[in-house]
Computed example of a mutant assay.
Amino acid sequence: MPSRVIVNADDFGLSEHTNAVILRAFHSGLISSATAMANMPAFKAACALAQQPALRGRVGLHFNLTYGRPLSKAIGQLPQFCTASGEFDLGVSRKCLRLGRAAREAVEEELAAQWQHCLNLGLMPSHLDSHQHVHNIWPIGEIVARFAAREGVPVRLARNLGHNINPAKRVFKRLLNRRLRQLAGATADYVCTPVDLRDGLAPADGLLEIVAHPSALGSHDFGDAYLGTGESLQALLEQRLAGVPRVGYGVLTATPVGSGLLGEKV
Rank of each mutant, 00 (worst) to 15 (best):
residue 181 R to H: 09
residue 161 L to G: 02
residue 235 A to D: 12
residue 56 R to C: 10
residue 81 F to R: 01
residue 253 T to Q: 15
residue 121 L to F: 11
residue 160 N to K: 02
residue 102 A to D: 15
residue 30 L to F: 06
residue 87 E to N: 13
residue 47 C to L: 05
residue 156 R to Q: 10
residue 204 A to W: 08
residue 235 A to N: 10
residue 240 R to S: 15
residue 157 L to M: 08
residue 198 R to K: 13
residue 143 I to S: 06
residue 15 S to E: 01
residue 237 L to T: 02
residue 28 S to Y: 13
residue 94 R to Y: 12
residue 102 A to S: 14
residue 127 H to Y: 12
residue 193 T to D: 05
residue 266 V to N: 14
residue 204 A to C: 03
residue 158 A to P: 06
residue 161 L to N: 01
residue 99 L to N: 08
residue 90 L to I: 09
residue 75 I to N: 00
residue 74 A to R: 13
residue 192 C to D: 00
residue 167 P to V: 02
residue 130 S to F: 10
residue 95 K to A: 15
residue 28 S to D: 14
residue 126 S to M: 06
residue 214 P to N: 11
residue 87 E to P: 04
residue 25 A to V: 02
residue 76 G to D: 10
residue 215 S to Y: 10
residue 238 E to T: 03
residue 161 L to V: 01
residue 178 R to M: 15
residue 226 Y to H: 15
residue 57 G to K: 08
residue 209 E to A: 01
residue 240 R to L: 12
residue 110 E to R: 05
residue 192 C to M: 15
residue 206 G to Q: 03
residue 121 L to A: 10
residue 230 G to P: 04
residue 168 A to W: 09
residue 77 Q to E: 15
residue 118 C to F: 01
residue 236 L to F: 00
residue 243 G to C: 12
residue 40 M to H: 13
residue 12 F to N: 00
residue 76 G to F: 03
residue 197 L to P: 04
residue 120 N to S: 14
residue 183 L to C: 08
residue 238 E to C: 12
residue 227 L to D: 09
residue 9 A to I: 01
residue 252 L to M: 12
residue 86 G to A: 07
residue 84 A to C: 10
residue 129 D to C: 06
residue 141 G to T: 07
residue 103 A to M: 07
residue 209 E to P: 06
residue 89 D to W: 09
residue 147 F to N: 01
residue 158 A to S: 15
residue 208 L to K: 03
